[in-house]
């Protein structure tokens, strides 16, 4: 029994070592249908995103809402956060922008804060401008049933 297992293990190990040699880097394709050793497909020349009519609906409850406007050259630095110039609670009334969510006032230990949590400072880490980009590969993603 032990002997058989050892033989099988050696066999699997040998196979795993052999596969890359047999297939070679050129044979393996990335998800974007390119050989992994190849140059990625050149990005299409994209135009600046102009302000959309309104935000696209979310696809699942936890999804960070998309940004329905251009954020080109927005400064989000230690000095200044351009997003918060409209979306902070003190500015939202004057600008008519959506107020930053309550969930952003909680630190990682779940404690409620009176101001924006430092871990939520970089808006564009989660929120991205919406665009009509075509999917690079076919996929079966469906909107969550609850939405």
């Amino acid at each position: 029994m032990k002997n058989a297992m050892r033989k099988a293990a050696v066999g699997i190990a040998a196979l795993m070592l052999a596969i890359p040699l047999l297939v070679g880097a050129d044979g393996i394709k990335s998800l974007r249908e390119h050989a992994v050793g190849d140059v990625e497909q050149a990005p299409e020349n994209h135009r600046e995103i102009r302000d959309a009519g309104g935000p696209l609906p979310r696809d699942f409850v936890q999804q960070p809402p998309l940004i329905p406007h251009s954020v080109q050259n927005y400064q989000v630095t230690t000095n200044y956060n351009k997003c918060m110039d409209c979306h902070s609670w003190s500015r939202a009334a004057a600008t008519g922008a959506t107020k930053v969510s309550l969930t952003h006032f909680r630190d990682r230990d779940g404690r409620e804060l009176s101001t924006l949590s430092a871990r939520r400072y970089f808006c564009l880490q989660c929120h991205v401008p919406q665009t009509d980009a075509k999917p690079l590969v076919e996929n079966e993603f469906k909107r969550a049933p609850g939405m």
């Binding site: 400064q75 000095n79 200044y80 918060m84 110039d85 902070s88 924006l116 430092a118």
Partner: peptide, 15 residues
């Protein structure tokens, strides 16, 4: 600050 970085501004969003 459209062509240069802004100085530090107290936006009331934390320290």
């Amino acid at each position: 600050g459209i062509a240069h970085r802004l100085p530090a501004i107290d936006q009331g969003i934390g320290e």
